[in-house]
Amino acid sequence: MASNAKRIKNKAVGPVPQSRDEAREYMRRIGSHQNERKRIEATMNEQIQKIRDKYQALAAPHAEQINELSQGLHVWCEANRGDLTNNGKRKSADLGAGEIAWRITPPKVSLRNIMGVIENLKSLGLDRFIRSKEEINKDAILAEPDAVDGIAGISITQGEDFVIKPHESELEEVA
């Protein structure tokens, strides 16, 4: 007979301190491990930066050449655009070693002085171009929780975190 009860799995718990002194020792060890992890992370980031710098330096001359050659190719293609596109009947051309193409980008709206634009649109009766967004003010609800008590769909919850903050010790530089 199969049971309908859900099976609950808990993570295995490691050793548990048996006294305040042992708890203090656990805290000290956690802090020590955190410091070592930070040191390892700093060393890793330093090595990654060295590798990144090395390969960026190797790639830089190629990037410069790509840029220079691309600009020259663009000038030549613009000068010969009619021949390359069959007088505008095509948007691309195959040059044997690769293809070039002219693409029209989608239209985009750029705004400056947004409040001024909104005022102008309102004064011209063009409210359809102004978006109005309704949303719940959660800060106001937290300020007055009794006012929304019992309203379906609103619940105010609060949890508790267990925080471990070992004291950090820093080595002093000696000159």
Rank of each mutant, 00 (worst) to 15 (best):
K91A: 15
K91L: 15
S92V: 02
S92Y: 05
S92C: 01
A93E: 03
A93G: 07
A93F: 04
D94K: 00
L95E: 07
G96A: 01
G96V: 01
A97F: 13
A97E: 14
A97R: 10
G98S: 05
G98W: 03
G98F: 04
G98M: 07
G98C: 09
G98R: 00
E99M: 09
E99G: 07
I100C: 00
I100H: 04
A101G: 14
A101T: 06
W102M: 08
W102D: 02
R103K: 14
R103W: 05
R103N: 12
I104S: 10
I104N: 09
I104H: 07
T105K: 11
P106E: 09
V109I: 14
S110N: 13
S110G: 12
S110K: 05
S110L: 09
L111W: 02
L111E: 06
L111R: 00
L111C: 04
L111Q: 00
R112D: 15
R112P: 09
N113G: 08
N113K: 10
I114S: 13
I114A: 13
I114M: 12
I114Y: 10
G116D: 04
G116M: 00
V117I: 10
V117Y: 03
V117W: 02
V117D: 00
I118P: 01
E119N: 13
E119W: 06
N120M: 11
N120K: 10
N120I: 05
N120R: 12
L121A: 04
K122V: 11
S123Q: 10
S123N: 14
S123M: 12
L124T: 09
L124A: 14
L126E: 11
D127M: 12
D127T: 10
R128P: 02
F129I: 04
F129T: 03
I130F: 02
R131H: 14
R131P: 11
R131Q: 15
K133C: 12
K133D: 15
E134W: 08
E134D: 13
E134Y: 08
E135R: 10
E135T: 13
I136Y: 04
N137C: 13
N137D: 15
D139I: 10
D139G: 08
D139M: 05
A140H: 09
A140V: 06
A140R: 07
L142Q: 01
L142Y: 01
L142K: 05
L142H: 05
A143S: 12
A143Q: 10
A143I: 03
A143K: 11
E144G: 07
E144M: 03
E144D: 14
P145A: 01
P145T: 03
D146A: 12
D146I: 06
D146Q: 10
A147P: 09
V148R: 01
V148E: 02
D149N: 11
G150V: 00
A152I: 02
A152L: 07
A152K: 01
G153N: 06
G153R: 03
S155W: 03
